[in-house]
Amino acid sequence: MTAEPLLRHVQMYDVARTAHFERALRSGAHTTILFASRRYDFDEVLARAVAARRAGVWGAFWYTLRNDVDVLETAEPLVARAAPRTLAAVFGTRLRRLIGGPRTRVVAYAIENKDPWQGHESLPLYARLKLRAQLGLLPLVWRQLDRIAYGTDQCAILYNSRFPAARRSHRRPEERTVAALPAAEAVGGPRDAVVTFLGDFSHRKGFDHVRQAWPLVAADRSDAKLVLMGKGGGVREAEGLAESLTSVRAVIDPDRDTLFAELAGTKVLVLPSQPRPRWREQVGLPIVEGLGRGCIIVTTSETGLAGWLSANGHYVISPPDDVDALAGALLRALADPRSPADVVAELPAVDGRVEAERWMLRAPEPATR
């Protein structure tokens, strides 16, 4: 019995991060990652392990022209700056097919939560003109797709508003929503009153709001501890708060083992994301990683998972900039009697991103007459 040939899968990312490489290593497919730029949490060792490579428009075109690709997973279709690279890669697969290459299926995983046609009024003239040209390519990107998986309901609503059924008659991909939730993991028993902020020390991630809210929390809960874990422009402020308050500890730029060890001792994960003119929290990787390790979540209505979190007993703040509401939510979360096992009991058996990828990579059903 001959083994099935390994699926040749190319993933395109506008911005690559460590989690992308970890997922590729767990995948059963032969995955190659092409990326345009790096996120702050870019692991060089893992990048080499998956042979990730930087590729602009021409690099993406030449790669797909020279290599057989069974499934091309594009960057997020509503990321305007990624559109030229996506179309170049698709064009490369089309040309390769003319010289005997395979028929490449084009798929996408989407979690975008901000309409790209909004919020760019304040950009300089040249940047506005460039963005408008890129936005003009998005309907063409849409028409290349065979399948698209949405990671949140809010994302699906956004795509349906921008590509309504009446405009999809030319080429309509298969669509499916799979919540971007982690799989349930084995967790320990009750935890101490530890709150962890994980991520970029920036205003958009709500770092400033956590700093302002914490004295209100500490005044009410003398046993509560705050861990500030991450890196970014606010490192100095994180270290300064840790030096001035005994209830605060800073963990700067942790490796993945340290990160997961800290989460294993965390009761409450806080990520109070704030809206920006051209950005909105899509999901929030810290939220996903915290849920998977049994943390109660305190966040804002900005995340695409806000609906699921509210429905499952987590704490979602609206409006997102209310510091008093943030302090109150943290206190309620610390007093929440649920154990880590109770938190993960609400999670799916299979990681949502993994389930979405399995569906995207699955061979289409044979056409019936």
Rank of each mutant, 00 (worst) to 15 (best):
V45G: 14
K225V: 04
A165F: 07
R369Y: 10
V10L: 15
A82V: 03
W62C: 10
R38A: 05
A149V: 08
V251K: 10
A335G: 06
A60E: 03
A186K: 06
T177H: 09
M1I: 13
A127G: 05
V50T: 15
R96K: 04
E355V: 05
Y315T: 02
R105I: 13
F91Q: 05
L123F: 09
L123A: 10
G151M: 12
A183E: 08
Y40N: 13
F163W: 03
I297C: 10
I111K: 05
T368Y: 15
Y109G: 00
E239L: 11
G234V: 10
D342T: 09
R162Y: 03
T32M: 12
P366A: 02
L6R: 07
L285F: 14
H20R: 10
A36V: 08
R249G: 08
G352D: 02
P275W: 06
E121L: 14
T31I: 06
G292V: 04
S169V: 10
H20F: 13
P84R: 07
A3R: 06
L326G: 00
E44W: 12
L131I: 03
I252N: 04
A133H: 01
A165N: 07
R54D: 03
L123P: 01
M12L: 13
E365S: 14
P277Y: 02
R96L: 12
I33L: 15
W117C: 15
R147M: 11
V10T: 09
N160H: 08
A183L: 14
G307M: 11
P320K: 13
I111P: 06
L216C: 06
P102C: 07
P337K: 15
A80Y: 09
A238F: 02
L46S: 07
T86A: 10
D322S: 04
V15K: 04
A242R: 01
D68M: 15
L291H: 05
G284Y: 15
R249M: 12
V79A: 15
Q274F: 06
A349N: 04
N312E: 14
T266V: 14
Q274W: 02
V343Y: 00
F61M: 10
Y13N: 11
T300E: 11
